[in-house]
Amino acid sequence: MSSSAPSRQTRSSDRVVVDTDTRRASALAHLLLNGTLLVLFGALFVQAGALPSSAWEPLGAGSFPRLVLAVLMLINLGIMAQEWLHYRGAPSAAAGLVKRWLWRQRLAFGVLALFVLYILGVPMLGFRLASLAFLILVQFALGARRPRSLAIAAVIAVTFSFGLDWLFRDVFIISLPRGPFS
């Protein structure tokens, strides 16, 4: 074992504290995630009611999506009720747990932030340029630093951004957002 490697020895009392902290934090994370999904599914449920009706469907085009979304909302409510019981039953977490968790998840949050910027950038830049920038930045964030890996990242980004645009435009005849430079 090298001197720079962290020690893996823990006391049993330390493991109990971590386990109870993890349980409470996990329950809170599930509550927040399912609450967010509940709001999202509720908004989609309302929007599905505005789908145009069809002469061939007696229930309308929005009936099946609304049924699926209603079931998903019920599932979210059930999970939230179950997790609320776990959350209330677990003792309070140790100080600094959220900050440590956020630090450990920084890469996931960084990629999520880049994805939000990508979604906002597609209408402004068009699919090709927004995808190109997104793919290069994500690969850089994920660790592409050497010239060879940066070159591979650039080839992947160009292939997927311009290649997918060509595939959808010329093969599937589906127009993707063009942007001001297209």
Rank of each mutant, 00 (worst) to 15 (best):
L107Q: 15
R106H: 14
L142H: 03
A113R: 04
S2F: 10
L59D: 09
L125Y: 04
L67H: 05
L167V: 10
F181H: 05
T159D: 02
W166L: 14
V46C: 06
R104N: 10
D21L: 00
A113S: 13
G35R: 08
L69N: 01
H30D: 01
A141G: 14
A5C: 06
I152K: 09
L74P: 07
H30G: 10
A48P: 07
I136L: 15
S13P: 05
R146F: 05
E57I: 05
G121Y: 07
A43M: 07
A29W: 12
T22H: 08
A130I: 08
S149D: 14
F160Q: 03
F168N: 04
T159A: 12
R148Y: 07
L32W: 15
E83V: 04
E57P: 00
A133N: 01
W84Q: 04
F140I: 10
D19R: 13
L44V: 01
F134E: 13
V116Q: 03
A133L: 12
P177N: 13
P147S: 06
L167P: 05
G96R: 10
L137I: 01
V16G: 04
R148P: 01
V39Y: 00
V158E: 02
A25I: 01
P180A: 09
A61H: 08
G89F: 03
R8H: 10
L44M: 07
F115Q: 12
P147Y: 05
P65R: 08
Q105M: 14
A29N: 10
L150H: 06
L135F: 10
V111Q: 03
L38T: 02
R8T: 14
P180L: 10
A93Q: 06
A48G: 12
S182H: 05
L137K: 00
A27M: 02
V122W: 03
L176D: 03
S182K: 00
F45L: 13
N34P: 07
S53W: 13
A133S: 05
Q139N: 11
A70G: 15
R24H: 12
F127T: 02
V155W: 02
L176N: 02
R106V: 09
